[in-house]
Design a protein around this nucleic acid. Structure first.
Lengths: 197, 197, 197, 197
DNA sequence: AATGAATGAGGATTCATTCAT
DNA sequence: CATGAATGAATCCTCATTCAT
C-alpha cells in the first residue's frame, strides 16, 4: 500500500515536471533527460515509472485535461444560476495570462499531434465531451430559467462554446500580449452571450 | 547562401511536396529526405533551394497562409451583399473535408510551434490580420446595409469570427469524421450569424 | 552538458585513442566514428564524454602538450649542470623517430589550425611559455656556471631554442627518413650550443 | 597560342584566388565554391581548369613556394658579400607582418598535411632544397671571405638556417602580435649570425 | 529502487563532383 | 568555354532505450 502510494506520488512528480518542461521548452525540445532534470531525478527513473516516452506524454495529457475539467466543473458547481455558472466557467477557463499560456502551449502541442496519435485524440475527445457536458447543462438550466433561447439545441451548441473559447485563447496566445488576455476574455464572453440569448 | 535566382517554379514544387509530406506524415515525421522523396528529387536539392529545414517550413507556412487568404478574399470579392460575402467566406473556408483536413493538420502543426518560433508567429499574425480585415469589411458593409447590429465594433468582433472558424474546424478535425464537416460548418455559420445580428 | 563526473579514466582512454587516430590518419580524416573505433567503443560514447568534436581535440592538445612538457621538465630536473640539463632537454625532445613522428604529425595539425582556432592557440601559448621557462632556467644556470655567454638575455633567447627544436623536427618529419633523426638531433644540439656559448 | 596564354592567365587567377581564400579562411574552410567566389567565376570553371580540388591545392603550393624562393634568390643576388646576402635573405623572408602571416598560415596548412599527402611533401622538399642552396652558397662565400667559421659544413648547416627561420616565424605567427615581428626577426638574425660565426 | 554508462539508429547539413544546356 | 542544377556520400550530433551495477 505504502509502496503504491509512493509510486503514485512519484508519477505525479514526473508528470508535473513534464508539464513544466513542455510548457517552457515545447514538445519538440523535451527529451527524457529534460524531464528527468526538471524532476531532479536520474534518467533511468523516468523509464522505471513509464514504459517509454510516449507513455509519459499520454499520461500527461490525460492528467492535464482531467485537472482542467475538474477545476471547471468545480467552479461551475459553486454557482446556481445559468448566467452565474457560465460566468464561472469562463472565469475558470480564462484564469490568468500565465496559466493560460502554460496550458495552451502544451495543449496545442498535443492537439497538433492528436490527428496522428490516436491516444492523444481519444483523450482529447473525452476532454471535449466533458467540456460540452458542462456547457450543455448550463444551457439547459438557462433555457429552464428563460434566460437562454429555448430554440437552441444544447447538444449542438455546447461544442461551439468550447470552439469559441479555444479559438479565442489560441488567438490570444499568438498575440504574445498579456494585456490582451482580458480583451479576449471579454470578446469570448460577449460572443457566447450573444450566441445563447 | 542563396547565390543565384533559383527557379521559382522548383521552389514551388518543393513547397508543394513539403505540404503533402507534412499533411500526410506530420511535422515531426517529415525529414528533408521525406520532402526530397515527395518531390522526387535528391536530398541535396532541398538544400540547394533552401538555406535549411526551417527555411523550407517558414516559406511553406508563408505560401500556405497567403494562398488561403487569397482564395478567401477572392471568394468574398465575388459577392456584393454582406450576407452573401459572409456566406462566401464561410464556404471558402469550409471547402471540403479533404482539403480542410490537409490544411488544418499542417496549420495546427505550425500553430503549436508558433509560440516558440518567432518566424511562424509573425506569419500567422499577418494571416490573422488578413482574415480579420475580411470580416471587418463584411461587418462594416452589413452595418451600412442594416443587416448587422450597428452597436458592434467591427475591429473587436472580426477576430472572434476567425476564432469561431478555427475553433470549429479544429474540433471537427479531432472528430475524424468527414460527415460532421457539414455539421460543424452549419454550427459555425449559425454562431457567426447570431453574433452579428 | 557535462552532467556527471564522468570517469577520468575513460576520458583518458578516448584521448589516447584520438591521438592514435590523429597520428595515423591525420586531423582531416579523423571522424568521431574513427575515434570510437580506435577506442573500441560506440560512437555515442565519445559524445557522452565530450561536448563535441572540438572539445575532444582541444582536450587532446591540452593533454598532449602538458604530457610533453612534464616529460621534458622531469628529464631536465634529473640533471644538475646547465650543459647536462640542456643535453637532457634535447634528449627528451628527440626521443625516437617513431614517437617524434607521432607527436609532430599531430602537433603540426594543431599548429596549422591554431592561427584560426583560439582554443588551440591559447594552449600552444601555454606550451611555448612552459618550454621557454625550461630553457630560460638552464640558461640562467649556465650563465652562473660561466659556461654560457653572460651577455645573452635568457628571456629573449629561450624562445629561439624552441624555434630551433621545432624547426629541425618539422624539417626532419618532412624528410620521411628515420635515419636522419639522429642527424637532425645533432644539428639541433650543435646550433643551440653555438647559440649559447 | 592566345588560347593557351589566356588559359594560363586564368589558372593564375584561380591560384591567386585560392591563396587569398586559404589565407583568409583556412584550408579546412575553403571549398571549391569559395575559390570560385574569390575568383569571381562560377564553380564549374574551377573544375574546367583543374582536375579536382587536390590539383588546385597542389598547384597552389607549387606556385607559392616557387614564388617565395624566386624572391629570396633575387634579393640575395643583389648583394655581393656573404653578410650582405644573408641580411638580404632574412629581409626577404621577414617581409612584413601581413605578408608573413598570409604566407605562413597557408604554408603551415600545407606542411601539416605534407606528411600524408606525397604531392605536398615532394613540393616542400624542393622548396627546402632551394632554400638550403641559398644558405649554402652564402655560407661558402662567407667562409671564403673569412667571415664565417670555416669548420662548419655548409651542407649540414644550411638546413638548420631554414629551421631557425621557420621555427621563429611559426612562433611569431602564434603570438598574434604584429609588433613582435621585428623582435623575432632580430632574434632570428642574431641566432643565425652566432651559428655561423 | 535508482543510477548513469553505453548503444546505435536517424536526421540535418556540407560539399566535391558530374553533366545537361 | 562557362554555368549552375543535381547528386549522394560522408559527418556531426541527438536521443530513446537498454542494462549492468
Amino acid at each position: 500500500m505504502v509502496r503504491y502510494k509512493k509510486s503514485e506520488e512519484k508519477r505525479k512528480l514526473l508528470l508535473h515536471a513534464s508539464f513544466q518542461a513542455l510548457s517552457e521548452l515545447g514538445y519538440d525540445a523535451v527529451t527524457l533527460q529534460t524531464i528527468a532534470d526538471y524532476a531532479k531525478v536520474s534518467k533511468g527513473v523516468v523509464h522505471y515509472y513509464f514504459e517509454n516516452k510516449e507513455a509519459v506524454l499520454v499520461d500527461l495529457l490525460d492528467w492535464l485535461t482531467a485537472k482542467i475539467y475538474d477545476k471547471e466543473a468545480a467552479a461551475v458547481g459553486l454557482q446556481s444560476t445559468a448566467r452565474g455558472k457560465m460566468e464561472a466557467y469562463i472565469d475558470s477557463v480564462f484564469v490568468s495570462p500565465e496559466k493560460n499560456r502554460d496550458f495552451y502551449r502544451v495543449y496545442l502541442d498535443f492537439l497538433a499531434r492528436a490527428s496522428r496519435i490516436p491516444a492523444y485524440r481519444e483523450i482529447n475527445s473525452r476532454f471535449y465531451a466533458n467540456c460540452a457536458s458542462i456547457s450543455r447543462e448550463i444551457m439547459e438550466l438557462g433555457q429552464r430559467e428563460g434566460v437562454y433561447d429555448p430554440g437552441l439545441s444544447p447538444a449542438d451548441t455546447a461544442p461551439v462554446i468550447r470552439s469559441i473559447i479555444d479559438g479565442c485563447l489560441i488567438q490570444w496566445l499568438m498575440s504574445e500580449n498579456d494585456e490582451l488576455h482580458g480583451v479576449y476574455k471579454g470578446r469570448c464572453r460577449e460572443a457566447i452571450e450573444r450566441l445563447l440569448s
